[in-house]
């Protein structure tokens, strides 16, 4: 995004929170927060219910076929699986609110520790991929819109079509072959952790982030292009041209901000996807991320882990939606005033 946009948004933010418009903005944020809380409540009920109806008893699964009834019952007690539904739900939610996510059946360590370790891989990876995707997609989409109907546009549209059609793990393998084996610039997999410094960790995340970002960038560039072309047909662009703006100035100064709403929506959705949906890429690059954790949790009937990670992801999605909603209101004054 051009720097002019950033400073504009800064001044807008200032106006929204510091000026006369502070009340509508707070009101807007408050209503969004309430809907966030209600969504979380609804999600926790659904997750709890789904996990309850999944067949298979974790205790008997863990102890094997030969275990006696008594041992299974004892383990079930131990795992907090006995007691009424309501009791268990309240204990689960209450635990999460105090940071206690329970103990994993299989790993025998607190789930919060497990998740925290994985989050330190998945969150930076998702942010890295999202940043790459945005940085690539916005200028490319703008260029295609400005050159619509001309060879540059056709070229970009063809490339993005390819980017969407080709699965990201194929990109991942291609990247490994080219940039890790033929020219060994980046490691081909594994994650050294953040203790060894930011440099090596980022290097390890680069190829997976690129592989994740390419299809996302293709989608985002197309959204950017069509949103921008849509705004370019608006009357206010004609007004801007009649004021003496060049076509490029009209796009940057008037088209961009108006095209941001659909683009922000897609960016929000992509972040949620990248956080949990990177499982195949995690497999290809041997990254200990959240996707693999949840996959293992499911196969091993480690329901506490599944419940907690899914809840965490839901929380992340809802939080991102909330942030996107706030960003909408910053971009579009009509939303601040509740229209």
């Amino acid at each position: 995004m051009p720097s002019r946009m950033a400073s504009r948004d800064a001044s807008l933010w200032h106006r929204a929170v510091g000026g006369t418009n502070v009340r509508p903005m707070i009101h807007y944020a408050a209503t969004r927060l309430i809907s966030l809380a209600l969504s979380l409540l609804a999600a926790s009920l659904v997750i709890f219910a789904v996990v309850e109806v999944i067949p298979g008893d974790p205790a008997s699964f863990m102890l094997g076929l030969n275990a006696s009834e008594d041992t299974v019952a004892a383990l079930r007690d131990d795992l907090g699986l006995s007691g009424g539904l309501l009791e268990r739900y309240v204990a689960w939610v209450g635990g999460m609110l105090t940071g206690d996510f329970g103990t994993s059946y299989t790993y025998r360590v607190p789930v919060s520790e497990l998740v925290a370790a994985r989050l330190w891989v998945s969150l930076p990876l998702a942010l890295y991929a999202l940043a790459l995707s945005t940085v690539i997609a916005l200028p490319v989409g703008m260029l295609a819109a400005a050159r619509r109907g001309r060879p540059t546009d056709y070229g970009i549209m063809g490339a993005t079509q390819l980017g969407i059609a080709v699965p990201n793990f194929w990109f991942a393998m291609l990247l490994v072959v080219l940039l890790a084996i033929t020219w060994p610039i980046f490691p081909s997999g594994g994650f050294p952790g953040w203790d060894g410094g930011i440099g090596p960790a980022l290097r390890a995340l680069t190829l997976p982030a690129v592989a994740l970002a390419l299809p996302q960038a293709s989608i985002l560039a197309r959204v950017m292009r069509s949103a921008l072309i849509e705004t370019l047909n608006q009357d206010y662009i004609r007004t801007a041209r009649a004021k003496g703006l060049t076509e490029g100035q009209a796009i940057r100064r008037h088209g961009m901000r108006n095209a941001m709403i659909p683009v922000l929506t897609i960016i929000g959705m992509q972040f949620s996807f990248l956080l949990a949906g990177a499982i195949i890429i995690e497999k290809v690059f041997f990254l200990p991320g959240l996707g693999l954790l949840i996959f293992q949790g499911i196969t091993q009937r480690d329901l506490i882990v599944v419940e907690s990670v899914v809840m965490l992801l839901v929380f992340a999605v809802i939080l991102v939606t909330f942030l996107v909603d706030l960003a909408y209101a910053l971009v579009d004054p009509r939303l601040r005033h509740g229209r």
Binding site: Y236, R241, L245, H254, R257, D332, R334
Partner: peptide, 24 residues
């Protein structure tokens, strides 16, 4: 571009959509 807006100004039919909705 230097002439438009400076020497020749223009107004249009649809005032409802002729202004950029996100700019003061």
């Amino acid at each position: 571009c230097a002439v438009r807006g400076a020497e020749v100004g223009m107004i249009f039919q649809e005032p409802m959509t002729a202004l950029n909705p996100v700019q003061s």
